[in-house]
């Protein structure tokens, strides 16, 4: 085991646990930043300065976009089982990932990356499956993709500079997508999913209301038909 890689992997997994456990959006963004900054470093050999710079810039930009989308005093749902349980889940998955390094064949990357990847996937599962607010769902999606990238680092040869650039674009895209969704949810005053069978006014309806923004023409028609 490489102690440096193990240390970085531990920090990354810790960030993931905080990201799925915290309720304060600022803590969640900071934890995700730790994950996005640390994940590309769990690789042998360490990438050159340019790819690292691209990944760091992408992580910062992704986090910045998240911050923009999460302005205000809204709170995320947080974990239902508490952070100690999330930590144990992550630790168990990390051990499984470390022990199964290579998944049946000789791997070209470090075992620590696979351990971190398994841990991230394990903590991402609950928000993805049972997430009750858009931020938790988004964070779960981000963690799942980061988990896949970590397992890829463990199984295959280290990503080249070009691939690092494309991964950087993906990181920015993920941050932007979660920010856009959170921004749309924020307009309703909460991050909770509004009508996913939660007993809300639209719950249980076979056909949901049209989610389109009204066109100029429709707005004019509504204005004309409104009682004076």
């Amino acid at each position: 085991m490489n102690p440096a890689l193990a240390g970085i992997a531990t920090i990354v997994v810790g960030g993931a646990v905080v990201a799925v456990s915290a309720r304060d959006p600022r803590a969640i963004v900071l934890a995700m930043l730790v994950v996005m900054l640390g994940a590309p470093l769990i690789v042998v050999p360490t990438p050159g300065p340019l790819p690292i710079l691209a990944r760091v810039a992408a992580a910062l930009l992704g986090a910045r976009l998240l911050v923009i989308g999460l302005r205000g005093d809204l709170l995320a749902g947080g974990t239902a089982i508490g952070w100690p349980a999330e930590t144990f889940v992550a630790a168990a998955a990390a051990v499984a990932g470390f022990a199964s390094h290579g998944l049946g064949a000789a791997a070209l990357g470090p075992a620590e990356a696979q351990a971190a990847g398994f841990a991230l996937a394990a903590v991402a599962a609950a928000p993805l499956i049972t997430g009750r607010d858009v931020l938790r769902l988004g964070i779960g999606s981000m963690l799942l993709v980061q988990a896949a990238l970590l397992v890829r680092q463990a199984l295959d040869a280290p990503p080249g500079d070009g691939e690092q650039l494309v991964i950087a674009l993906l990181t920015i895209g993920l941050g932007g997508a979660v920010a856009v969704i959170a921004g749309a949810a924020r307009a309703t005053g909460a991050l909770a999913i509004p009508d996913d069978g939660d007993g809300g006014p639209a719950a249980g309806r076979l056909r949901h209301a049209d989610a389109h923004r009204p066109t100029q023409r429709e707005l004019a028609r509504e204005a004309a038909s409104a009682p004076r």
Partner: peptide, 25 residues
């Protein structure tokens, strides 16, 4: 899930993001 859309758009966007993440993974 555009800004300023109806509230359900955020839910739709979340589902789309989840599908993209799972498929990509």
């Amino acid at each position: 899930a555009p800004l300023g859309a109806a509230s359900r758009a955020a839910f739709v966007g979340s589902r789309e993001l989840r599908a993209l993440a799972v498929a990509g993974t």
